[in-house]
Design a protein around this nucleic acid. Structure first.
Lengths: 242, 242
DNA sequence: TCGCCAAACTGGTCTATACCAGATCAGCGA
DNA sequence: TCGCTGATCTGGTATAGACCAGTTTGGCGA
């Protein structure tokens, strides 16, 4: 089927398909949130098979240029959200400030107990009561992260009764007078797997960024431990040191 | 060939293969730097084909559990290097402090001129002389990053004549009395593509972390702009805010 | 006009196979 | 003993299909 290109050392076909699509995105022929032609059509256009086409798409996905929406197709990625962990406290405010539309959904709120994994990270004792909150957050209608938040009910009595579909940071400040001071942040790239992958609506193995954040108030008292699973193409992190 | 598992809703075969390998790693049957059985053997063991086996391996690679060495095989990933951009200055010292063996290779040193991309990031004027240094760095013999470093020859006269196969930070301090103060850091996950992918010896599309760092001395004078391309499974980033 | 349902379409998973190119290694010859 | 060489092993690239499971959509009927 494929006419043999007899020149030596041409790049592999799947990279040529990748470059062709990348050029169309760069030229503005394909813009954020537009759908790419289907895999079958792309395969036909390049005189190849779906397997090879999917290799090319996987390359662009890994670069963060396109993403897939489950069985709906491939889409051009929007710009990354700029996130400054040393400055930003509120997801909603940050997203809004960058001209985009945030949304937050509470998935689950549970009163439970500190396990050993949490204990070493928060300073709480094993067995201490703790409130476990799961949320999904979106930018312009696209889910970009799910998070597990663990709240200290000693410092935040009655916290489990509030509505969490808004800024947690505002809630803490307005209802509990908490001024967050210290934060320990850890992050590394990894794949999203279940249950996070299905919560965010992507296939297992999609590239992600894992971020944890432990926040304390002005007295050094543990307030909140946050575990975030981001889509890898959704954010860019900026840190300033002086 | 494959005996049909007639239970409904069993997970896909490639995820079962993934989980089987992950369990072996967790149990310690496969330890860092040991080679996995070849794709053909794994396929045979699980009564499937190489294509499906490679899907499973790609999952584990995306999670950072295994990595591939070009045409040599798949290996279990070593622990991530902990990197604290707000504290750490020296790659070599940091790697050594974590009980591992660092190595640095200089790939290229060129005296060139500031382009517009660099100008907006460094504050230099377009056309200003600048020294471009490319290095590859290893941990325990495995290349984990390549970097482009741009040095300000006004602040660092004669810098291009030094040997760069050691800590640049020490060189700046000892030879030029530079005390780095301000740093602007930006990072996001993306795929490694050529020329960085081949410089690091991985296939194009391998997951990576892109990090840039702009350093200034105590007077606020631009000293160094660093652009790093890390393997995504090689590091974990920690930031402390107070 | 509205709502439902079936067809068409999407990506998701999987088989079976082929050939290529670089890495490795055993064995042969100097 | 050492170095070369070729066989063998590895992953890398590619074809040509198949069927499944959600999503979307167009048309039909109330």
């Amino acid at each position: 089927m494929q006419e043999r290109v007899d020149e030596k050392s041409v790049s592999p076909l799947y990279l040529r398909v990748r470059d062709h699509l990348a050029a169309q995105i760069a030229k503005g022929l394909l813009t954020p949130s537009t759908r790419l032609p289907s895999e079958r059509i792309l395969a036909e256009e390049h005189d190849t098979t779906r397997v090879t086409t999917r290799l090319a798409l996987a390359q662009l996905e890994a670069e963060g240029r396109i993403y897939r929406s489950n069985r709906r197709g491939w889409f051009v990625s929007p710009p990354r959200l700029i996130y400054k962990p040393t400055h930003d406290y509120s997801f909603s405010e940050n997203v809004t400030a960058q001209g985009r539309v945030p949304a937050t959904e509470t998935l689950d709120v549970t009163s439970t107990h500190t396990n050993s994994w949490l204990a070493t990270r928060t300073g709480m004792a094993i067995g201490d009561p703790i409130v476990w909150l799961r949320r999904r957050r979106q930018i312009d209608g696209r889910p970009v992260l799910v998070e597990n938040i663990y709240l200290n009910p000693k410092r935040l009595p009655g916290i489990e009764t509030y509505n969490f579909d808004r800024s947690l940071w505002k809630l803490l400040r307005e209802q509990y007078g908490v001024e967050l001071r210290g934060k320990q942040i850890e992050m590394y790239p990894t794949a999203l797997v279940d249950p996070q992958a299905s919560a965010i609506g992507v296939t297992a193995g999609t590239a992600g960024l894992y971020v944890t954040r432990c926040s304390r108030d002005a007295d050094g008292c543990f307030v909140e431990f946050d575990e975030e699973f981001w889509l890898h193409d959704a954010l860019s992190i900026q840190v300033e040191v002086s």
